[in-house]
Amino acid sequence: MAVIVDRFKCGYCGACVSVCPTGALELMETWIEVDDSCNNCRICVKICPVGALEVSK
């Protein structure tokens, strides 16, 4: 279970990184990386302007 990023939708803006309470997200040049500190809080899913993030089942 962790957030997954749809790289075809993602605009690599970093908005999700700024709200992540555990610091699990990082904006590389043109993609978002998620590390294993993600706690599935879904805040990033909610604020993504283009809806590129989802919590995997």
């Binding site: 908005a15 700024s18 993504c48």
Partner: peptide, 26 residues
Amino acid sequence: DGVESKVGRWAGIDTTLKPRDMCTCA
């Protein structure tokens, strides 16, 4: 390092934004 800043966090300054403290834009 912008909205996605990590530098402050690394130095112990909590710059994490709450959803109501950030504006999501397109």
